[in-house]
Design a protein around this nucleic acid. Structure first.
Ligand SMILES: [Zn+2]
Ligand SMILES: [Zn+2]
Ligand SMILES: [Zn+2]
Ligand SMILES: [Zn+2]
Lengths: 152, 152
DNA sequence: GAGTGTTAAGATACAACATATCATTTTCGA
DNA sequence: TCGAAAATGATATGTTGTATCTTAACACTC
């Protein structure tokens, strides 16, 4: 848990929060977006765009093309409703949309589960290292691959 | 630069160091491996397996299949002759093979160049966060995407 | 309500990244 | 030289991601 307060939403409540957040940015909460968010939030592990496309297609009885999923996931990431786990080529729903910070993901190489950590101090240090090298528009990618406790 | 001393090899010298290191592990320095290492070391940015396959194939006038390149890159990574940049799906030659540490990569979204940083303190903190969560076999992935000084 | 512009989503194709499997060649010791 | 083991090749296929164009939905004006 980070150093600041925030709700960890789930289920209905999470979708509502996501919707509110997206609409606050002037974007629409369409049926397709709702379906994709629901699917994403339903996964307990990082889900690939193709995982989501398949699930949503089945659930709605109507095909959603992967490129549409990518578009919407990009929108979600840009608006902080979801995060991309780079080392897994996959996405996670943000359980506290609207709360912006650099996330740290611990990904289990055995079960695929990802633990989401916030550590402002640590991520600020990473940003600082990059800034010292003259970087701008900094986006830290802090992940750890390993074996989780359950799988040990 | 890290807190410890090490040579930053280049060209012939780098290949020699890589070779020595690989052979120390009981692995062979074959022609194909030498060619792939040379190609990899010749790139100034992280190179994909397919980039390398193409370059080596052309240079030798004999096709190297991508899967062979992947195999050899995996071997290089396992023996610390190369590093994989996760957020770029690409590889970099290790300019000080044999020196083992968690690398930090700053990758420019504009020009693709990657700056390699070592910060033992920082990477240890990341390891610690994972350890606190019960993770084992920890492999930190610390990268920063952004715009480099040159491209600003 | 018809016309018009804008945004969202679909269809399709393809590019890029990665692995699986089996065959062939090379290496090296017995 | 023979046979086993390791390295590489050939080929196929799986997975991830983008480009381009079309169609559908929506809102706004007239
Ligand atoms: Zn938070
Ligand atoms: Zn696990
Ligand atoms: Zn070092
Ligand atoms: Zn740059």
């Amino acid at each position: 848990m980070g150093k600041h307060q925030h709700h960890e939403h789930q289920g209905e409540s999470l979708a509502d929060a996501a919707r509110a957040n997206l609409e606050k940015s002037g974007e629409k909460w369409t049926d397709t977006r709702a379906a994709i968010f629901e699917a994403l939030a339903g996964f307990s592990r990082p889900a690939s765009a193709y995982d989501i496309a398949e699930l949503v297609s089945t659930a709605r009885g109507k095909r959603v093309a992967p490129n549409s999923v990518y578009r919407i996931l990009d929108l979600f990431v840009a608006n902080n409703l979801a995060m991309r786990v780079e080392s897994a080529n996959a996405y996670l729903a943000n359980s506290h949309p609207g709360c912006e910070h650099d996330c740290i993901f611990l990904v289990c190489d055995t079960c695929g589960e990802a633990t989401h950590i916030d550590d402002e101090l640590l991520s600020q240090q990473v940003r600082k290292v990059a800034k010292n090298q003259g970087f701008s528009s900094i986006r830290p990618v802090i992940e750890v691959r390993g074996i989780c406790q359950k799988c040990t």
